[in-house]
Write a protein that binds this DNA or RNA. Structure first.
Lengths: 197, 197
DNA sequence: ACTCAATGTATGCGACGATCACAATGTATG
DNA sequence: CATACATTGTGATCGTCGCATACATTGAGT
């Protein structure tokens, strides 16, 4: 008879998985706890055992997103070359690739409204992300390919363009073709912008 | 007795104004047509006479936002100097200043989900915005302060950093202080990035 | 075996967006 | 001025939502 057991097994993971799918297919606005519960064949109140509020679920998704982004970027550095240009290029493509492939998720990750408690875990993840970029800039400086100056300020000039490129591209970009040539230009401009005089 | 007249007078404008206020104070997620109606002392269904859906109201807000942004940027160019650096600086500060002062509105403007009909008017507005920036780059080229190349591709390398700076700053920026020094760095980097070789 | 925390069910509440029939008002036309 | 018509607001209804509560079932540790 294969009756659905009273306990789901791993409802929390199932909720996250299904939520991310809906997020990808229909955007974050279309996320409904009740719908998730229906889809997973579970009662409307069940999700609240794992996420005390809808915002908590969104926070968890954002956190998961940061972790995946970190992995993706870290992986991109493994096969990359030694020069700052090569490593920046790899990092940029990883970052932009992930962002475009997970636009709604990115939106969540960089959304301003997280519950205060979740913010803590999120800030930790975001901090690790920042450190990755600081380290890239730092080695670039040691190799003499990046101008001198405070790490964080230079990193900002590296990441703002990438983040902005993603934002524009996702917004239905009134700007030049979303083909990757735009990204090439942006990366080249970043490198010129942070090169030593 | 000052009884409220049956007709409001200019409900549409009142809705937009009030909506923008709540948008600024409590974010776009907190916008409710019913609440707006209550605040304006009008029945729950009344707003639908002016905005057939909530999304339509958001679209109208976004459109209004683009118009104000255009004005702001145009005004910034009036008092600016002649060099590309001066004009870019003025434009960047106008753009970033407006964006930070109207973060939630910006979010709406660059949100991916607009109803197809509204998209048309929105694209017109966005297009005018793009043209402003193309023109800035174009005169920069004529003055020999900006490298040769397709206008739109160079403009992308100018605006992506600004747009990204705003995005990071609004996200509670895990990056360096939201003080304006970060913006100075970004602007300087943009200028180096698009300078002739 | 018994207890207790964890997890899922069932139900209800108030708010929401959307839609509808209807009422009040403004306006153009005779 | 009167009458027809379009515009705008009313009030009620529908289905959905997030959230809270009281209760049922399960499994883990003693």
């Amino acid at each position: 008879m294969k009756k659905r057991p009273y306990h789901h097994g791993d409802l929390r993971a199932a909720l996250l998985e299904r939520a991310e799918q809906t997020l990808r297919e229909r955007g974050s606005g279309a996320l409904s706890l009740r719908e998730l519960a229906r889809d997973l064949g579970v009662s409307p109140g069940a999700p609240s055992r794992h996420f005390k509020s809808k915002q908590a679920l969104l926070d968890a998704l954002a956190l998961e997103g940061f972790e995946r982004l970190l992995e993706t970027i870290a992986a991109s550095q493994d096969g990359a070359g030694r020069t700052f240009g090569e490593r920046l290029n790899a990092m940029a493509r990883a970052y932009v690739g992930f962002s475009l492939a997970n636009a709604a998720l990115l939106d969540l990750m960089f959304s301003a409204k997280h519950s205060p408690e979740a913010s803590e875990a999120l800030e930790v993840a975001a901090h690790r992300w920042v450190e990755q970029s600081l380290e890239l800039v730092s080695t670039g400086q040691r190799q003499g390919e990046v101008r001198e100056g405070p790490l964080d300020r230079i990193a900002l000039t590296v990441f703002a363009p990438l983040h902005g490129y993603v934002g524009l591209a996702v917004s239905g970009a009134p700007l030049p073709g979303p083909d990757r040539r735009g990204l090439d230009d942006v990366i080249a401009s970043i490198i010129r912008g942070c090169a030593p005089d």
